[in-house]
Amino acid sequence: MGRRRIGGRGGLALAAALLATGPARADVQVRYTAPERFTDAENRFGSGQPLRVTLAELTRIFQDLGNAKLRPGERLDVTVLDIDLAGFDRPGLSTPTGVRVVTDATPPRIRFAYALRRDGRIVAQGEETVTDINFLLTSNPRFSTGGLYYERQLLRDWFARRFPENG
């Protein structure tokens, strides 16, 4: 039995095309409804993280978790309706990044609607408010990288509960 070998420029082009496309990934689309009215998504005292940075980071969190947890080819549409970040801004301290005081009385809370599509059909949808009053007991930001650590942990837990069969 002879094996067929692909050689020359055609074979290299095919190999390059396969490498460029990579494995299929889940598609996660995130939208925000009236973010300027969110409970607490930015430092309102002139220092700290602006709203656009918070929204960009939250979008990245949803996309990273979706790509890790959802099946290739699935699409998750998320519409964020409200954000209340962990902690509260401390006015009066003028530091370039601001100061956010986090206590057990200030848990993160995110309200959003979602729809999961598989082969163009909606297979799961709903509106959720995720929060964890024990967030300081169940997470340790000292070993984290990136911003919005408590919110990332909250969404990681939600993905694990909502899509357990996918991962």
Rank of each mutant, 00 (worst) to 15 (best):
V101S: 03
D157P: 00
L148R: 00
L85C: 05
P108Q: 00
V102C: 10
I122H: 09
D132G: 02
A105H: 07
I133M: 12
R118E: 11
Y114T: 09
D104N: 14
Y114C: 02
T131M: 09
A115I: 13
V130I: 15
R152S: 06
Q125T: 08
P141Y: 14
Q153L: 00
L93F: 12
S139F: 00
R100K: 07
N134V: 06
P96H: 11
P91D: 12
E127P: 04
S139D: 09
D132S: 09
V99N: 05
L155I: 01
A115C: 03
T95S: 14
L116G: 01
R109C: 03
I83Q: 13
I110P: 01
T97I: 13
R90F: 14
N140P: 10
I122S: 13
A113F: 06
P107H: 00
T145P: 01
L116V: 10
R118A: 14
L155D: 05
E127F: 09
E151N: 11
T97A: 09
V130F: 09
Q153I: 01
D104F: 07
L116W: 07
V102E: 10
S94G: 06
W158Y: 02
L155N: 00
T131C: 11
D104G: 14
L137I: 12
A115F: 10
T106K: 01
T106L: 01
L81T: 13
D82P: 13
D84G: 14
S144D: 10
R100W: 03
G87W: 04
Y149F: 15
A124P: 06
F143S: 09
D89C: 15
A113Y: 05
T106G: 10
P96K: 06
D84M: 13
R142K: 15
L116D: 03
D132H: 06
A124T: 12
G92W: 07
L93E: 08
T131H: 12
T103R: 10
S139A: 13
R111D: 00
V123M: 08
D82V: 12
F88M: 08
A86I: 04
L81Q: 15
L93S: 00
T138A: 10
F143P: 01
N140S: 02
Y149C: 01
E128H: 11
F88W: 11
N140L: 10
P108S: 04
R109F: 02
L81G: 08
T97K: 06
G147Y: 08
G147C: 01
T129F: 09
A115G: 11
V123A: 11
T145I: 07
L81E: 11
R117P: 02
R152L: 03
N140E: 09
A124H: 13
D104W: 04
T131Y: 14
V99A: 11
D104V: 08
L81C: 01
D89H: 15
A113V: 06
G92E: 09
R156M: 02
A86S: 14
V101A: 01
F135R: 00
P141G: 02
G92L: 14
F88I: 11
F159S: 09
R156E: 13
E127Q: 15
P96M: 03
V130G: 00
R118K: 12
L136V: 04
Q153G: 05
